[in-house]
Amino acid sequence: MTTIDLDYSTLDQTKLDDLTAYIDSLEHPEESLIHVLHRAQKLFGYIPYNVQFFVAKTLKIGAARVNGVVSFYSFFNEQKPGKYTISVCMGTACYVRGAEKVLQKLLEKLEINKGDVTEDGLFSVKDVRCIGACGLAPVVTVGEKVYGHATEDMALDIIDKYRGDLDGN
C-alpha cells in the first residue's frame, strides 16, 4: 500500500501564506474551492495530497471533498508534471487533421505513456480538450506557446528545441 503524504509542513511556507491570504480574501471561501485549487496549482505546479489536505484544513471542509473535486476536473494535476508539458489538442478539428499521429510520434520519441513524465523530468505529454484554435489544427502547445498546423516532423523539432533549451522559455 502506498503511504499518502499529508504533511504540509514540508511545503514552501511563502506559497502556503499566499494561499492562506487568498482564501482569507474570499467572500464565500467554501463555494470558491475551485478557484482556491486554481491558485494552489499556479503556486505549486500541481496539487499533491499534502496541498489538498492544507486546503481542506484552511477551508474547514473534509479532505475527501477536496480530493473529490481535484480528481473530478481534468485541469487539476495530482502528479508532478514535467518541466515542459506538451499538450496535443484532441478537438474534432485537430483529430481529423491528424493530431493522433502527432501525439503518437511524441510519445514514441520520448518513450513515455500519455500523462507520464520522462525520466529526466523534462517532458510530460498529454492530450487536451479542444482549445478552440481550430483554424490552426492540429495544434500543439508547450506552456503558453502555441504551435499550429503541427506535423510529426514538427513534433520532433519541438522536443529538440526544448531539450536544447534554445528557446529558454
Partner: peptide, 11 residues
C-alpha cells in the same frame, strides 16, 4: 463553458 470539441464561437 464551451466544451464541444471543434467549436469556438463563444471564445
Amino acid at each position: 463553458d464551451e466544451g464541444d470539441p471543434g467549436a469556438f464561437m463563444d471564445r
